[in-house]
Design a binder for these strands. Structure first.
Length: 304
DNA sequence: TAGCAGGAAAATC
DNA sequence: GATTTTCCTGCT
């Protein structure tokens, strides 16, 4: 079905889709094409209108509104960041970038694969897993694969997962899929809890065993920010750690500053991660996740 | 708490 | 063409 979504709010489709939140969108000429919720969604931004074409009645204008969170008051969010030059410049440069509302299972699985990989590689791994385990379908004469459900990956053979180029990540993905498939991960509960409690839920242990192998504080923050509506979640990856060390030594305090700038490899222990996370969230406030997304874009594109 | 392994592709030199 | 880096976590 084809439809348009009028934009009465700042939005940049390009910045949003290029900011490393999503791994199943591609640019095809002037159109962006994504595999979302088991169907294709094509979107083209024409000034203050989004032209859309989708393969499912479910993917309608109200879905698009929710998916791109166009109801969020971006100007209000960004106005809270006029605290320093770094974030102000990033917010101006990538104005219109938004946090997308993803499916929690797909988001969790994708970021379990994202460890020690770069974005092109993550896309390759995700696409290989979808081709092998996802339901195939066609749209406008082209074939696609849906993101597989957790049951399919829970039953997968590790050797087959490895053939998707996952390496050491295959046992983690299988384990996480099993936990989700058996109902051990309550995303709805995570969504309803406050940030701190929701994060404890995702990195929790039962009987001395981790609920989700392969999910540490960083991956948990990604899931909370991108799929559980926790706008204060601030995922700290190597790029963000560099930005913090370079541009925000003062909010870290002397001890953490030393840790970040001395440690060339930028590997954070859980306790350091938590300490930094707390300070940064205190500094940027309830929409710290948006600040993180703008800083990530700026850092990766070297416009700091 | 610190140190290390893990696999492969991309980025960089 | 070799080396370094890559949206990190688990184990010892």
């Amino acid at each position: 079905m084809e439809f348009t979504v009028p934009l009465d709010t700042p939005f940049s489709l390009e910045y949003t889709l290029e900011s490393g939140q999503l791994f199943r969108w591609e640019r095809k000429a002037e159109w962006w094409s994504g595999i979302v919720s088991g169907s294709v969604l094509k979107v083209k931004q024409e000034g203050d209108v989004l032209r859309c074409s989708s393969g499912s009645d479910r993917l309608d204008s109200s879905f698009v509104l929710d998916y791109f969170k166009l109801d969020a008051d971006l100007d209000h969010i960004l106005s809270g960041f006029s605290k320093d030059e770094t974030i102000t410049r990033a917010a101006e440069r990538y104005y219109g970038l938004r946090i997308v509302s993803q499916d929690p299972w797909e988001c969790l699985a994708s970021f379990v694969l994202a460890t020690n990989a770069n974005i092109p590689r993550i896309k390759k791994m995700v696409s290989a897993v979808c081709r092998r385990y996802g339901a195939p379908f066609e749209f406008e004469g082209e074939s696609y694969s849906a993101f597989p459900g957790p049951e399919a990956l829970a039953q997968a053979r590790e050797a087959d997962l490895s053939e998707c180029g996952l390496g050491y990540r295959s046992p983690f993905l299988k384990h996480v899929a099993g936990a989700v498939a058996t109902g051990g991960v309550d995303f709805a509960r995570a969504r309803s809890l406050g940030y701190e409690d929701a994060r404890r839920l995702l990195v929790s242990e039962l009987f001395g065993r981790k609920l989700l192998l392969g999910v540490g504080p960083k991956v948990a923050d990604c899931v909370l920010l991108y799929s559980c509506g926790k706008d204060e979640a601030f995922p700290i990856d190597v790029w963000i750690a560099r930005v913090l060390a370079l541009k925000y030594p003062r909010i870290l305090g002397p001890t953490l500053k030393k840790k970040l700038s001395a440690d060339d490899k930028l590997k954070l222990s859980p306790s350091h991660y938590d300490a930094i996370s707390k300070k940064v969230r205190n500094y940027f406030g309830g929409y710290a996740g948006y600040a993180q997304q703008y800083l990530f874009m700026a850092a990766r594109n070297e416009v700091l």
